[in-house]
């Protein structure tokens, strides 16, 4: 019984993933595309949960859905891409698109047909997941031992990208009023307010 339910859930989520992935490309409204992309991410993480990889699933939701896609949606909403402009380049770039698609499909087929993906082969040596290690621990064991350098390097690449983005967008503008927080805190009532006795009919000279 449990297997039937798991199987049905898998097919449900898989179908939703594929359908929403198609809608990402096919939707006429750019914001709808992003929303479908988010749905695809979310159902993907559900698939990860079904496969027993909870940590990857949660991180997928937190990083991609919770942060990256929000900013993505943010930008797309601000751009106001009309339907006409969305399909403007179809004729010009259609051929290139089809070629890239075919190349990716060929790569996928080659990768999937290799030994590592076959069900009957025993677990690969670089995969130390055993019964007493859960996925989170197993992931940590691999990332911080075998692939430590690669892990650090990808972190550095992200750091460089971040610094690049900041230097590209940073500009010093003149004449902008900025609040200096220390100065603001230092400011006392006596510096700003003075109580004077005003004589009627004379005012303060």
């Amino acid at each position: 019984m449990e297997e039937i339910i798991t199987g049905l859930t898998f097919y449900l989520f898989a179908a939703v993933t594929i359908a929403s992935a198609i809608m990402v490309v096919g939707s006429r409204n750019a914001v709808h595309s992003v929303l479908f992309l988010i749905l695809a991410f979310f159902t993907c993480s559900a698939l990860f949960v079904l496969r027993g990889a909870e940590f990857v699933a949660m991180i997928l939701v937190i990083v991609y859905v919770g942060a990256v896609a929000v900013l993505f949606l943010f930008v797309v909403m601000m751009l106001h891409v009309g339907e006409n402009r969305l399909f403007q380049g179809v004729r010009r770039f259609g051929v290139v698109g089809v070629l890239v698609g075919l190349a990716v499909a060929a790569e996928l087929i080659i990768v999937i047909s290799t030994r590592a993906f076959r069900q009957d082969t025993p677990a690969v040596a670089s995969n130390p997941t055993t019964a007493d290690l859960n996925v989170t621990e197993a992931l940590g064991q691999i990332l911080y031992t075998d692939y430590f350098l690669l892990f650090q390097m990808s972190g550095l690449v992200l750091l460089v990208a971040m610094i690049g983005a900041i230097t590209l967008t940073l500009r010093q503008r003149d004449g902008v009023k900025k609040q200096s927080i220390p100065q603001q805190i230092e400011r006392k009532r006596e510096d700003a307010v003075a109580l004077r006795k005003v004589e009627s009919g004379k005012g303060i000279g």
Binding site: F55, M58, I62, V65, G66, V70, F74, T136
Partner: peptide
Amino acid sequence: INLGLLYLFAISSLGVYGIIMSGW
């Protein structure tokens, strides 16, 4: 579940979508 805290964090980080979607 094992990763209850991460689940909680993931779900609460989705809350922003309701607001963004309504705004748009």
